[in-house]
Design a protein around this nucleic acid. Structure first.
Lengths: 336, 336
DNA sequence: CTGAAAGCGCTTACAG
DNA sequence: CTGAAAGCGCTTACAG
């Protein structure tokens, strides 16, 4: 019994040839006798030889490891993106090292530095809410590690970016309500100063403008955080006179919170008031009424971001690109 | 300007000492002159020296990389576990390589083998629904890679396991309903033959037995898949005569699906019928009525599983252990 | 306390 | 087509 896994040395000895020849046979080089090659491959299989990835990395100076940093793994959207990346990685023979910043810039920087010290071939990052500076990104690039930002980007950063056009998603959602005949469309937004909140609100405002519907400030309210205190914002817009005939929400959970509030007011959804969420959470199809919502292609974002990064790694291209994926409006009963 | 990152060779040359001495100074060895040590450390800082992780791995024959395989990254429960592992990993100076099997045993095996060829120091796995054999686990162990299974385990496998006592969670949930005075408690189960389904159903049955409540088959129904076709199962149990006064669901989504069905029947929750879910999805606190549910400590499972694996890696212990974490019953309006 | 040497497992010019 | 040699960046006995 062999205690340790076999190496090319073991193969070479067993076949009475040199390690260089074994190495060449293994990696499909052209200048190798087909018979020698077959013999090596056969023995390699028998001995269950596996190339030592670490040793290869050291000499080739590339690890095929890609570092990924997201704000939180445990979030609907990011876990979808990670899923896309992971599937793509295994296909393309890359490996992912995933870290989360927990929305903390210090931890984010620490994670990136740790990843860099692992000699990652590339970095995929979606920045924390706190992150303003792209210094660590520059650090990576100085080490010739290509960087691709996705979803939560730093607009000024000098790297390729993959984002979702949430603005257009919001615009489509609100135009859908307008086509349904709604005239007094309210908006429950997310925390101010966040690009997601701003993009979606801008879509809302532009849809109104496009259809010459005046903006009424009393129909707009913001949640301080994403999931809590939605009820305060809902109460505010529902108290407007005349009351809204539709509400476009920053996310599905706040929309679902509103369903019961609206029911208590004696109003029917969608007859008296239509509602639209954002995200297409699984539950949006389970609640009653089923929720119309804007689906973001998280899985595709992940897949594309990784694909683009691999292209940069392999072609050593330094061209910066901006990829924008589109949302899909999923219409259900809540806006029929 | 230095084109490539500095190595210990560069440090040695600059200080006119040998690489062995630099190496010792860097890693805190005892047999080193404190002054030499200071000088090396100072220069290392100035030159922004970072030890080459790959080179270290090659000589030390350990990578500090842990391979993780889950059925799907993009699932509430597993993303929580991954989150716990990730936080734990960075603290303990390990790195995670995460793969997903997409519930496919072939892909699972492929992922494990890829991870092994990366010389992972340990393997953390939650197996796919298809997986029956622990062959690949044995393969890993033959290579002296410790394995810890979590959540979805192969009962017979010879390795340390970290699981959640779902049985007890279900038992507590049903006893809670019994204490509330319910006499005709129904159960909507998950796909048959799945250990999750079986464990939770057993908790239900044992709670009834413990309180001498007879089991009525017409109050038990199974969903074929987790999220779809819940409505058929709900209809079945709601048609039992006399009708149930409580339902214990396999998960929150099926419970939420039932809310509207029950409302349409003209029944009130919780007055006429109480309901309890499983998982504590975010939405369970947003729906009306807010859902009583069983919380599984996914984050803690991840943290513990990784901690235990690291212990095995570092102490080279081969003792097999079984860790069982407990659920928490979160009582809300739907069962008051 | 320090240095020279060997080695981790592989790849890749270079000579033949 | 094949082999000897050098090297990737580090660690670790071994001598001194």
């Amino acid at each position: 019994m062999m205690q340790r896994p076999p190496t090319i040395k073991d193969l070479a000895r067993a076949l009475n040839i040199s390690v260089s020849t074994v190495s060449r046979a293994l990696r499909n080089a052209t200048d190798i006798n087909p018979e020698t090659r077959q013999a090596v491959l056969k023995l390699a299989k028998e001995m269950e030889y596996e190339p030592n990835f670490i040793a290869q990395s050291l000499v080739k100076k590339q690890t095929h490891i890609i570092g990924v940093v997201v704000p939180s793994i445990d979030s609907n959207y990011f876990s979808e993106a990670l899923s896309g990346m992971t599937d793509c990685a295994i296909e393309q023979n890359y490996h992912l090292m995933i870290c989360q910043s927990n929305e903390n810039e210090v931890l984010e920087n620490k994670s990136i530095r740790k990843l860099l010290s692992c000699n990652i071939d590339g970095l995929l990052i979606s920045v924390s809410l706190q992150t303003k500076s792209d210094n660590v990104i520059k650090e990576a690039q100085k080490k010739h590690v290509p960087v691709v930002m996705f979803d939560r980007i730093i607009p000024g950063a000098d790297c390729t970016k993959v984002i979702v056009n949430e603005y257009e998603g919001a615009l489509k959602a609100v135009e859908h309500l307008i086509k349904k005949g709604c005239k007094r469309i309210a908006h429950i937004g997310g925390p101010k100063d966040l690009s997601v909140s701003e993009n979606r609100k801008k879509g809302y405002l532009d849809a109104l403008a496009k259809h010459k519907i005046p903006v009424r400030e009393e129909l707009i309210a913001h949640c301080k955080s994403f999931e809590e205190d939605a009820i305060g914002a809902i109460r505010k817009v529902m108290n407007a006179k005349p009351r809204p005939d539709a509400i476009f929400f920053i996310n599905d959970l706040s929309a679902i919170t509103a369903i019961e509030y609206i029911r208590r007011k004696g109003l029917r959804i969608p007859e008296d008031i239509k509602i639209v969420g954002f995200n297409n959470d699984k539950v949006s199809n389970v609640v009653e009424p089923a929720l119309t919502t804007v689906m973001q292609p998280g899985y595709e974002v992940g897949k594309l971001a990784l694909g683009v990064l691999i292209d940069e790694i392999e072609s050593k291209s330094t061209e910066r690109q901006l990829f924008e994926l589109r949302t899909t409006l999923v219409t259900r009963k809540s806006s029929r």
